Simulated assay, not measured.
Amino acid sequence: MKALLPLTAALVLALSACKADDHASPADTAASKEPAPAASVPPASLPPSLPEPGEASGQPTSSQLAGWQGYGDLKLGSTVEEARQAWGGELNSSTPSEGGSCYQLTPKWATDKADVAFMIEHDHFVRYDVTTSKETAPGGGKVGMDEGQLRALYGDALSSMPHKYVEGGKYLSVSQGKDKLVFETGADGKVTSWRVGLPPQIDYVEGCA
């Protein structure tokens, strides 16, 4: 009889465990089967923004500069001192002709003094000249275009007259108020340079010469 007691006790313990499992709630069972939440991953940081064209070199872009009233912050009719202050950077200066008051200022970054030149006469900024295709004139004209392309941009407002020195070349001009834009074309009919300025300096075909 005493030998049966341990066996009976073991059976009682086994039955008690089965009943405890039967009373477990469905919610508890589902929770035990649900996977652990994944660790949150921080969003990748965005790369730093790239500089605008010309920003790294300090050279401003042409689309922001060439206008009817001037070149960037340099306004036609301003004094040479106002022009220098408005530009903010270094400007190279040509030597006025003997007995004259006309000379040119050029940006330090210009690869050639004729790429972009600011005409000063009687201590006032009166005109700027461009000979590079990297610049765009007011209205969309550029070095390298032909007369047909210019007329598509400026229409009947574009007037024409023969070039003083180049056979077959022309001066093609358009005005907006007192400001005037003049394109010069070569013998092949392509634009070689253009300028914007005030009268009478805008019509100096030799510049400050």
Rank of each mutant, 00 (worst) to 15 (best):
G197M: 04
R151M: 10
P43L: 06
D112V: 08
Y71F: 15
T61A: 14
L198A: 05
L158N: 06
T79C: 09
A3E: 10
K108Y: 03
G168S: 05
L11I: 08
K164H: 09
G99P: 01
V205S: 10
S101P: 10
G72M: 05
V116G: 00
S40K: 15
G72C: 07
S173N: 07
Q64H: 12
L46K: 12
V205G: 06
G168M: 01
L5F: 03
G197I: 09
K33G: 03
T79V: 11
G72T: 10
E82V: 10
E82R: 07
S63M: 13
A56S: 13
P35T: 06
T192L: 12
T95L: 09
C208D: 07
Y71R: 07
G77K: 04
Y71W: 15
F125L: 02
T29M: 08
K170W: 02
A83C: 08
T136L: 05
Y103I: 10
Q104K: 12
S93H: 01
V143G: 10
V12W: 01
E147Q: 15
Y171G: 01
S133P: 04
V80E: 15
S97W: 11
S160K: 11
V41I: 15
G139E: 03
F183W: 14
L76C: 05
L7V: 11
F183A: 09
G88Y: 07
V126A: 00
S32A: 15
G197L: 04
P26L: 14
P96T: 08
K164W: 08
I120V: 08
V126Y: 01
T185V: 05
G140Y: 07
A9W: 00
T106A: 13
T136M: 07
T132F: 07
A209S: 06
E147V: 14
A27R: 10
P96E: 06
K108V: 12
V143M: 11
D112T: 11
L158P: 12
Y171P: 02
V196C: 03
A24F: 13
T8K: 02
P37V: 01
G54A: 02
A44H: 02
W87G: 03
A187Q: 13
R127G: 09
L15S: 13
D28V: 13
Q176M: 10
I120C: 03
T132H: 07
D73I: 02
T131V: 10
D179V: 05
A44R: 12
D28Y: 10
E52W: 00
S94L: 07
H124E: 01
S57N: 07
G169T: 03
S94I: 04
E147N: 01
A20H: 04
G99H: 00
Q64E: 15
